[in-house]
């Protein structure tokens, strides 16, 4: 009898320990409610929807808005110690349409995981997201998304932070409200790495090429780059949604070195001369977006080509499960106006 009691006690202790372990490190288990539907990112610092953007949301039956709340960046305190701080917080001019599900997104500078203990700000991080939602009448948040280009070196620190965010979410989510799930952006190359401890992943099917490399044809999207990683999609341990690009930009090189991205420069600028395909040369120096472009500098115009998106999509679809959502990056009438309604429908269709 004594031995049986001892054994039961042992089992009890063991169970308690396992239970505790589960509480600390919650592995991605059952997926909370996640409706499949057309989605779009909102990545500006001011939330104000134009008529065209509202029309886009309605026409394409957009159900979910991935709204960037703020970035977490580096700053230095009085003792020159690196500290993480929120920057570029979105300013709400308009109210978010109530029929849209909002997923707050926070971009985190990966270098912070080298230089400081991010776990110390996990609580502030969660409280800020929840307060922002409450203050701006964004109700029914069911998911929060972390956007970080983590690497093998920062993997552990990042994953620890994600777990800590999970713990803080459990602590601060008002009682009676269903659990808020966590999602994370997954770059193509990260498909070969251990998945982060979140409920879902959003596969970023853009920024596939080397932006700083002068030889790159189009760093936004190239089917060949996608093809390299497409085979890993099916075996990836997290349920995935996919984000496709609908943006364009100009990549500025001077002295053969990458200088900056220019989002407002267009190929019809009178100071540019076509070299070939999407490459232009500056023939006369001029100011653009606060920067001075000198004669002889090179500009590479990049856009998200519809056909390229469709080809990449076909590559990825083979490995994806049926219940995934397509997200467009990002909601901006200037960029989206370059696509026909049918083209947008084709990107969303699956």
């Amino acid at each position: 009898m004594y031995k049986i009691s001892l054994f039961l006690l042992y089992l009890l202790v063991l169970t308690a320990c396992v239970g505790k372990q589960n509480a600390d490190v919650e592995p991605p288990t059952a997926e909370p409610q996640h409706d499949v539907g057309n989605s779009v990112y909102y990545w500006k610092t001011t939330f104000r929807l134009s008529d065209e953007e509202r029309y886009f949301i309605e026409t394409h039956n957009v159900k979910r808005l991935y709204l960037r709340y703020f970035d977490v960046a580096r700053n230095a305190d009085f003792h020159d110690k690196i500290i993480p701080v929120p920057i570029a917080t979105v300013k709400f001019i308009d109210t978010v349409p109530s029929n849209l599900e909002v997923v707050p997104v926070v971009f985190i500078d990966n270098s912070l995981f080298y230089d400081c203990d991010m776990n110390q700000v996990a609580e502030n991080f969660v409280k800020r997201i929840l307060t922002m939602s409450a203050t701006n009448d964004i109700n029914g948040v069911r998911e929060i998304q972390l956007d970080c280009d983590w690497t093998k070196t920062t993997e552990k620190a990042y994953f620890d932070f994600v777990k800590n965010v999970r713990t803080q979410l459990n602590r601060y989510t008002p009682k009676g409200i269903s659990d808020i799930s966590l999602s994370a952006t997954i770059r193509l190359h990260q498909l070969t790495m251990t998945p982060p401890p979140v409920n879902r992943g959003i596969l970023m099917c853009y920024n596939t090429g080397g932006i700083r490399n002068r030889q790159t044809e189009n760093s936004i999207l190239a089917e060949n780059d996608v093809a390299l990683y497409a085979k890993h999609v099916g075996e990836y341990a997290l349920p995935l949604d996919v984000a496709y690009p609908t943006f364009s930009w100009a990549v500025w090189f001077s002295g053969k070195k990458f200088q900056a991205l220019l989002r407002e420069l267009t190929p019809d600028n009178e100071n540019l001369k076509l070299l070939n395909n999407n490459r232009f040369s500056v023939i006369s120096g001029f100011y653009q977006e606060g920067k001075y472009l000198s004669a002889g500098d090179e500009i590479r115009f990049e856009n998200s080509d519809f056909q390229e998106i469709i080809r990449a999509k076909k590559r990825l679809e083979k490995g994806l499960k049926k219940n995934y959502s397509v997200i467009l990056y990002h909601l901006d009438d200037n960029n989206l106006s370059k696509y026909s309604e049918d083209e947008i429908n084709q990107i969303y269709a699956h």
């Binding site: 700053n75 701080v85 929120p86 917080t89 700000v121 502030n124 991080f125 409280k127 800020r128 307060t131 922002m132 409450a134 203050t135």
Partner: peptide, 11 residues
């Protein structure tokens, strides 16, 4: 505080 965001009450 850099992490502070106003609640409705704070506003």
């Amino acid at each position: 505080d850099a992490w502070w965001y106003p609640t409705k009450e704070d506003l």
